[in-house]
Design a protein around this nucleic acid. Sequence first.
DNA 1: TATTGTTATACTCTATAACTATA
DNA 2: TATAGTTATAGAGTATAACAATA
Lengths: 153, 153
Amino acid sequence: MPTAQPVPAPDATSDIPEVASVLRTSVMRMRRRLANERHPDNDLSLGSMAVLGALYANDEMTLGALAGRERVQPPSMTRMVNFLEEGGYVVRRQGETDRRQVLVSITSKGRRTVRKDRLSRDAWLAQQLVGLDADELAAIRTAASIMERIATS
Amino acid sequence: MPTAQPVPAPDATSDIPEVASVLRTSVMRMRRRLANERHPDNDLSLGSMAVLGALYANDEMTLGALAGRERVQPPSMTRMVNFLEEGGYVVRRQGETDRRQVLVSITSKGRRTVRKDRLSRDAWLAQQLVGLDADELAAIRTAASIMERIATS
DNA sequence: TATTGTTATACTCTATAACTATA
DNA sequence: TATAGTTATAGAGTATAACAATA
């Protein structure tokens, strides 16, 4: 029998498959729930709002950059930008140095929408988070950051 | 000027809107990435695999219970079960006490598929988690558990 | 020739409404 | 009448393939 030893550091590696599994499952269910809970007075899809959010932060992006950032194919981004442009949330202009490019920028209506909706569009989720303690919020923040890195890697 | 005081305990509540926002965003992107990264030799959708996983754990469930668990409407679950049944992964039988019910159970092929795929289907995600330390894995576990609770609430 | 974006088309997943069978 | 599940149908979101414009 081996001599008693300090408890070995938990082998984090051995947990990885299980963590991957629970993470994947919870992400799938969470996403569906989020899609169901979006605010009825906002006719923008979650995807469109994400695009608008990116433009809120970056002012002007090429369509390709938006597609890359949101991890959709260019035709999908064309559709989203069409929709946002029809609603007056963004404008297109032709690239100057490279005229194949389409530069998309957010309008003042788009900015207003982002600000107004940031208050309300996370309201449901925020409500679900009420009651969590600081450690739990920190865990979510850490996990979200890791997911973001994985999703955009 | 007020006397210097100990740093106040961070007001976790004030962080909630921001945490909600980053969580929502990361879930959306992560889900899309997961959908893109599923293993090519597995023709079962992520949703079908989740159903099979539930049946692996529970042996036999009604179609309604499966729909409730996966948070889809009954017609959607009918489709998934049809698909799984055609593939020989599950079988239907009529409820005994209530003959309106459809009891769905997993076949040995389904069990084999779950076992085999549990090893491979999370492989991509697990690979992304390699290198995380124990605290980070714990954070993901905590966050996943909270997401699961929220999504099924 | 290669790249950026668009158009045409089709597929997957999900929902609602109407229906059947059973309670 | 109410409930469990199915069928019919439609909508949202995404993809691939083919194309146009530009580099």
